[in-house]
Design a protein around this nucleic acid. Structure first.
Lengths: 340, 340
DNA sequence: ATGAAAGCGCTAACAA
DNA sequence: TTGTTAGCGCTTTCAT
């Protein structure tokens, strides 16, 4: 059915090894033979069978990526960076969505690893279970850290600190944080930043609000709690949550930023579409993806028997505060703005 | 290194064929053997090698998907539908982004087809070139039609008609359409709807505006042209373009909807985040993806030698008008609202 | 009900 | 420089 090496070989009057060599190491074939083989390849429209090649050599030229939710613009941004960098290296990238399901993540890694050279595992929630798989396979973690698996994370801790300082400079003293998914590493990181802020500025009251889904609905669900906490400044897990806050607050008749200031995280597309436009923490998502791929290519090149001694890189990307319209001076009567 | 069929076989004291059978057709092995094999599989943590299996059987259990831009919420929505439906069928889906590059699309289809059972090709721009490949391989087109390749498209034509009728009912007589990418099938479809509207309602003046990139920037670029055309109602290629219009119009001091009404298309997440919230045409993106997969599974099941006689399904999904705040009554002095 | 054996298409020693 | 050959791990007849 399909054209194979044998067809090309007989067409060109050489052996299959010569054809194979012409394709993978042209310099090791005589120019005249090379030309003849190439002509045959062209003529028959030969396409190498990747399954066979993979089975034999173990190399695929494909980089895998697992993300929790492709529809989330945050992950979409990282994906773009990964795709661009992979293409530059001559690899394609295969992206799969775990639908925010921890069990899926492990299953997908297991599946993907068989048809790729390595995997960028983005913000995995599953951790303890079968994650030991990760040490045995070329994997780079994004927004997550586990044992000595190479990783790239965002310095949300310092980011939060900057956001808190911004709000404090505007006169806010009572703050609230609307947290994200339970096992999210970046959520823990943000809370750590809050802790640092609390230590530095003892005049602040920072309320941490439970775990909310990292979507608009999460923000809507958290808005009333945030308001009831007496906070005049609210920090959100991400931009979508911030927009949920904005929306519910507006429906309650609370004005942003006059009554309450809101800070998002990530500076995704939607931050600028919100009303008012969101003050948020900017992340260079594409850069994140790019670095992840570079780490991965490195890991692959070092071979499967990566020296256990060499420390796995754990890169941290910074976060920059972008001030827009959702933050402003704290209301004058801030102190009396307590729970009902 | 990895656990193979042989390891499991010797552990269970059977032959490799029996192990293979236990895994793919359990009812054809004796219950007692089956149990023994399963225990061995469990114990050794056996994972079938997909490359070998693919090489031998030709089946992968993987569905491929090529989209122009993963970061576009529109395609992300379709992707989610595809992933969900594929999972239901026991397949995973591998998504790749062509970065809006037509050449990439063909190359990616070629690459993907080797590691998948079939492909959902989403809104391809490339058409004439090497597309003949598509007739030889299980492919379903989304938002595109080519020869007799099965396809699912959105009835943008009728959608546009509904949007025009909505604006006309509000008193608008001068309309403008901000078009999308040059070879976009759906753009042609929308223009067809405009044509139908023009025929039905001869009191309308509909101006078609050139090709703009389907992003916020495209809308910003088109806004001044739309305003200069004297139109009081503007139809946008998609929601992002509509938001670009909104933004530029606001900067020009034109009020929406008091001075100009704007209608988006697609009803993506951003439509509700815009200010004012967008009147738009709602598409059930997930449904689109779901149907595409069903079409594809059907095609795969029918085997490679699909009867050339059987008509390939060409499904059309409807579009529903969602009225929000970006459309309103035409300004009273509409007639005198001309260029300059 | 189970096993033996023949490849799927390719790569990579090794020989010539 | 080129050809020969031995598998990679699995599925699938065909025997038993």
């Amino acid at each position: 059915m399909a054209v194979t090496l044998y067809d090309v070989a007989s067409e060109a009057g050489v052996s299959i090894s010569t054809v194979s060599r012409t394709l993978s190491a042209p310099e090791r074939v005589a120019p005249s033979t090379r030309a003849r083989v190439r002509a045959a390849v062209e003529m028959l429209g030969y396409q190498p069978n990747r399954a066979a090649s993979l089975l034999r050599s173990g190399r695929t030229g494909v980089i895998g990526m697992v993300v929790p939710d492709l529809e989330n613009p945050y992950f979409a941004g990282i994906v773009k960076g990964v795709q661009a960098r992979a293409r530059l290296a001559g690899s394609v990238s295969l992206i799969v969505d775990s639908d925010e399901k921890p069990q899926e993540e492990v299953a997908l890694v297991r599946l993907l690893i068989q048809q790729t050279d390595g995997i960028v595992l983005c913000a995995p929630r599953a951790l303890d279970n079968d994650m030991s798989l990760l040490s045995r396979v070329p994997v780079v973690l994004v927004n997550q850290v586990w044992r000595d698996v190479p990783s790239i994370t965002i310095d949300h801790s310092t980011g939060m600190l900057r956001a808190v300082e911004h709000l404090r400079a505007l006169g806010h003293r009572a703050l609230a944080y609307v947290g994200g998914p339970e096992h999210s590493r970046s959520d823990a990181d943000r809370r750590d930043g809050l802790r640092r802020a609390q230590e530095l500025y003892s005049d602040l009251t920072i309320t941490s609000l439970g775990n909310f889904p990292p979507q608009v609905a999460g923000g809507e669900a958290a808005a009333d709690l945030a308001a009831a906490s007496g906070a005049t400044g609210v920090l959100a897990f991400n931009d979508l949550v911030a927009i949920g806050l904005l929306r519910r607050l507006a429906r309650r008749g609370l004005r942003v930023p006059e009554d309450i200031s809101v800070v998002g995280t990530d500076d995704t597309l939607v931050a600028q579409l919100a009303t008012p436009q969101l003050t948020t923490l900017h992340v260079d998502l594409a850069q994140l993806g790019k670095v992840a791929v570079e780490l991965l290519l490195d890991l692959i090149a070092r071979g499967p028997a990566a020296a256990p001694g060499s420390p796995s890189p754990a890169i941290r990307e910074p976060l920059d505060l972008v001030v827009r319209a959702s933050t402003g001076m704290a209301p004058a009567s801030s102190a009396s703005h307590t729970t009902s």
